[in-house]
Design a protein around this nucleic acid. Structure first.
Length: 224
DNA sequence: GCATTAACAGCCG
DNA sequence: CGGCTGTTAATGC
């Protein structure tokens, strides 16, 4: 259980809830920590919680039959995910790995369903989030085959900073080039080259152990 | 050939 | 000093 104060800090969508809903919600959330490299859950596990990233970085991915690692998305602090699996009451389709030390907020499915049945504000948020994700998946299908390494890096960085999914997103991202590689499905060296190209175009600035987004719009539209 | 992996020296914090 | 970055050399597709 967490305080109402804490809920405000870690869950931006709680701004859309009534006092009663906030009270109910804070009682249904617990915090949990995972060390760098730890699996939060494996594909096929039943993880019965809607999950928010409080701090750190999570990789959402899977392993193909041939043993190759496939990354579907990265989640940074402020992002909430897993509503699909909770709603459908089905096992997770992906592995969840902590790319660095991570703190998560876990909302039990009973609370999630109560909000789903009773809260107008919560549903408004859910629809917005689903809508945003659909847009991203359409873009993924449309462009993935044709994008080079720079394009994939640009898209994945933009995805991490999506203002609808992570409203508080600061323009500075604490992330190493290796982590960008893990999330984008590109080697660290290729990330290095991609970042330089993107910096040249003034879309972002490269720093030590982090980057600063200068033009999120351009990154999300980058095509080649 | 190209891109990814491996290895390593330099650098920032 | 430890972790991150930027090269270069080796290796695999």
């Amino acid at each position: 259980m967490i305080t109402a104060e804490r809920l405000r800090e870690i869950a931006f969508w709680s701004a859309e809830l009534t006092e009663e809903e906030i009270e109910r919600t804070r009682r249904g959330i617990t915090e949990k920590a995972f060390a760098k490299g730890a699996y939060i859950c494996h594909k096929g596990d039943k993880l019965d919680s809607w999950t928010g990233v409080i701090s750190g970085l999570v990789r959402l991915g899977t392993v193909s039959q041939k043993g190759k690692t496939v990354t579907l998305a990265g989640m940074r602090s402020g992002g909430w995910f897993g509503e699909g699996s909770v709603l459908k009451k089905e096992p997770r389709q992906y592995d969840l790995v902590a790319l660095r030390d991570v703190k998560l907020a876990m909302m039990g499915s009973a609370t999630f369903f109560w909000l789903f049945e009773n809260s107008v504000g919560f549903n408004r948020f859910l629809v917005k989030q689903f809508n945003e994700r659909i847009g991203q998946f359409i873009a993924l299908v449309e462009f993935d085959r044709s994008l080079d390494a720079t394009g994939r890096v640009a898209r994945n960085i933009a995805w991490l900073c999506n203002p609808v999914l992570v409203p508080k997103a600061d323009s500075h991202l604490d992330i190493t080039q290796e982590e960008i590689g893990l999330i984008s499905g590109v080697s660290r060296q290729a990330v290095n080259g991609a970042l330089k190209a993107l910096e040249q175009k003034k879309f972002l600035r490269v720093g030590h152990g982090g980057i600063t987004i200068l033009d999120l719009e351009a990154l999300s539209r980058y095509e080649d």
